[in-house]
Write a protein that binds this DNA or RNA. Structure first.
Length: 501
RNA sequence: GGCGGCGUAGCCAAGUGGCAAGGCGAGGGACUGCAAAUCCCUUAUUCCCCGGUUCGAAUCCGGGCGCCGCCUCCA
């Protein structure tokens, strides 16, 4: 099945063709833990990648690590440690957070510091071609030398220049020119270059690393929509001024995560660390939260929204785990099977049109509902199992609904079985008081009993699975304003699991 | 001011020309000893407003209103 994606560059849907997809997604600057808003592109584009792979395509997925940058240097100075130590620490934490978010590792995770010689080479070529110039140990890209500047963001040079917000730097020939190379100030990390010790500018690394690993043109270049200008515009300018060829065919940009309508950002303090949110609601609730909203639209973060996502995920698991306990013999009636096929088609149709994960998940939910009704109507259990298997298979690329039912450990299962046996006897004797007491006490212990026509079944309760190791009155994560980001060591140890713990 | 986008039920949200998906919540009913789960019914005659195009518009066009993002580091 084909796939059309909305490209920021052309402002329309573009067919993504080819058996191999070369994809580049802007990664983190490793100066602090990522917040939950940062996680949006990681989750969404990871899901896209996995969907493409499920279609049988090969995806080479590159995501950079910006490990040298002003914020890292500032943090290092604050802590009195080398910048490299800060970068190494948060790089490691970043990969841990990806795991917590259920995001697969990129095929390549190049670091900026590993590409300094190549960046210098690129800058030299741009100078040779007259697109860049040296000023006092800095090197700037000359925006005026690239007539197509502004084509991604839709900006017009003259209007940008009229803008009063652009800081005027005496060394620049034009206020819009941007730094390719920054001379080091005393005490700052530096690499040798033809223009003296310094470090590369931010916009250059993505160009060099993507071209080195993937070549040009990229099939997909993706990131948050706050990167459209100037970051991605500047990437295009450098890459295309250098090669004269299209840098990336399709530009994808996700919408921002907001809090009460305002963009979540470190600088405004209205953020929550990704790992805190995962610890509170679980990996899948977070993914479901993101994937049930079109990736290009803004999405408002709140406790309520995450709780809702969590309940929805639990509902699906309830279905899956129940269905998978049903007998396997029998045949799936054709009518029901056809209904499932229609929903499966809808699932793919939705995804193939600008990766509408929300619409696709709607189709999965309908499968769940249809299966419930089928069973209620006396349908063959095998049909219900078939529906469950299909939901699992289709949701796999989305990183949802893959968890197995949690099992009790050791002899616990047998002991629970014994209690159920006794309780069944009590119910026969109409001793409901004692029977209910067993049920209530087990519930307190996190074991939920359900009396069905086929007998009593039990499960570790969704609520118990979700139970947090904190007192009932303890505060949850704070999503309000926060003054200073907390250090990593102040955070609780990592936790993971299919739907929280 | 420029550029881009958004406005669909109590809340979240899909749908971009042909009877308004889905989720969460709420109310009523069935089932149950009671629960839980599930099922059934009810919760948008209508998609921010006003015009226009069309046999037909939430969907296209024009004009408003409101909100947001970018224009500075930013996923």
């Amino acid at each position: 099945m084909g796939l059309r994606l909305y490209s920021t560059l052309s402002r329309r849907l573009e067919e993504l063709a080819g058996d191999t997809v070369r994809m580049y997604v802007c990664g983190p600057t490793v100066y602090d833990l990522i917040h939950i808003g940062n996680a949006r592109p990681f989750i969404v584009f990871d899901a896209l990648r996995r969907y493409l792979e499920s279609q049988g395509r090969e995806v080479i997925y590159v995501q950079n690590i910006t490990d040298i940058e002003d914020k890292i240097i500032r943090k290092a100075q604050e802590e009195g440690v080398p910048a490299g130590e800060i970068a190494a620490r948060y790089t490691e934490e970043y990969f841990r957070d990806l795991e917590r978010l259920g995001v697969n590792r990129p095929t390549h995770s190049p670091k900026a510091t590993e590409y300094v010689p190549q960046m210098i080479e690129l800058i030299e070529k741009l100078i040779e071609k007259g697109h860049a110039y040296v000023a006092d140990g800095d090197v700037y890209f000359s925006v005026a030398s690239f007539p197509e500047y502004g084509k991604l963001s839709g900006k017009v040079l003259e209007e940008l220049e009229a803008g009063a917000r652009i800081a005027v730097d005496e060394r620049k020939r034009d206020p819009l020119d941007f730094a390719l190379w920054k001379a080091a100030k005393p005490g700052e990390p530096k690499w040798p270059s033809p223009w003296g010790g310094g470090r590369p500018g931010w916009h250059t690394e993505c160009v060099v690393m993507s071209m080195d690993i993937l070549g040009v043109p990229l099939d997909i270049h993706a990131g948050g929509n706050d990167l459209i200008f100037p970051h991605h515009e500047n990437e295009i300018a450098q890459a295309e001024a250098l090669t004269g060829e299209t840098f990336a065919r399709i530009w994808l940009h996700n919408g921002m995560l907001t809090v009460r309508g305002e963009k979540m950002a470190k600088s405004t303090g209205n953020f929550a660390y990704a790992r805190e949110v995962v610890a509170e609601y679980g990996t899948e609730a977070v993914r479901y939260f993101y994937l049930t909203r079109a990736y290009r639209k803004p999405l408002d973060f709140s406790d309520e929204a995450l709780r809702e996502a969590k309940r929805a995920v639990e509902g699906v698991y309830d279905f899956l785990w129940t269905a998978e306990g049903l007998p396997e013999e029998g045949e799936v009636p054709e009518g029901f099977s056809a209904g499932l096929s229609a929903l499966q088609e809808r699932f793919h149709a939705r995804l193939s049109e600008d990766f509408d994960t929300a619409g696709a998940i709607g189709a999965l939910q309908e499968m769940v509902g249809a299966a419930h009704r089928f069973r209620q109507g006396g349908g063959d259990p095998v049909g219900v199992r078939a529906a469950a298997a299909l939901v699992r298979k289709l949701a796999e690329p989305l990183g949802l609904f893959q968890a197995e039912r949690p099992r009790a450990e050791g002899r616990t299962e047998e002991l629970i079985g014994l209690l159920i046996e006794l309780r069944t006897e009590l119910r026969k004797q109409k001793n409901f008081a004692l029977a209910d007491r067993i049920r209530d006490r087990l519930a307190e212990l996190g074991v939920e009993l359900r009396d069905t026509p086929e007998g009593t079944v039990w499960s570790l309760t969704r609520r118990a699975i979700a139970r947090r190791p904190r007192g009932p009155g303890a505060p949850g994560p704070r999503f309000g304003r926060r003054q200073a980001p907390r250090s990593c060591s102040a955070l609780p140890p990592s936790s993971s699991g299919p739907i929280g713990r």
